[in-house]
């Protein structure tokens, strides 16, 4: 299985005019709900923020990967929001964040989907991947980049 089974172009939002992490996670969860991937957008948002409060998911190079394994999620999904401006986020390298990868999986998620996410996590550690998430303008190429 591949990452393209967990994301399609409709899960990628460019030019989001959000000014903080709550706004961007809200925009992404509402987009997921609109496509029928959630049981409850509000509950999913709360669960993501709860996880975020435990340890910030800000990485390096202006990327953050908020995520949750929640009963508010119907189907596993990876969605991406790219912002018009950088926003404050507690990151490993102190950078502000412009690309947010939201990972939402149901509580019952296991097996193949978790393996895809593990592969995605490893992919994010490879050279050039985080840079590409900032610069690529075609959505299908973002999916190809994450697929490796």
């Amino acid at each position: 299985m591949k990452i393209s089974e967990l994301m399609s172009e409709e899960d990628i939002l460019f030019d989001l005019p959000c000014s903080d992490k709550n706004e961007v996670i809200k925009a992404l969860t509402e987009n997921l709900a609109a496509h029928g991937h959630l049981v409850s957008a509000q509950e999913c948002l709360e669960d993501v923020l709860k996880r975020e409060a435990e340890i910030s998911t800000g990485l390096v190079g202006g990327i953050a990967i908020p995520h949750t394994r929640s009963r508010a999620v119907k189907e596993s999904r990876v969605s991406i929001g790219r912002l018009t401006n950088v926003i404050p986020w507690e990151t490993i390298d102190g950078s502000a964040v412009q690309v947010v990868i939201l990972i939402t999986v149901p509580e019952s998620c296991q097996g193949e989907h978790l393996k895809i996410l593990a592969a995605l996590a490893e992919r994010l550690m490879e050279e050039g991947v985080c840079e590409g998430l900032h610069t690529i303008t075609e959505k299908h190429k973002i999916i190809e980049l994450l697929e490796g």
């Binding site: 996880r51 435990e54 340890i55 998911t57 990485l59 990967i65 995520h67 949750t68 394994r69 990972i103 999986v105 978790l114 996410l117 593990a118 592969a119 995605l120 996590a121 490893e122 994010l124 550690m125």
Partner: peptide, 19 residues
């Protein structure tokens, strides 16, 4: 290991192996 066990665990594992 990390709280949700979805992402950081595997990024850290990859980072250690690479290094």
């Amino acid at each position: 290991a990390c709280p949700a066990g979805l992402m950081h665990t595997f990024m850290a594992a990859k980072g250690l192996k690479k290094e």
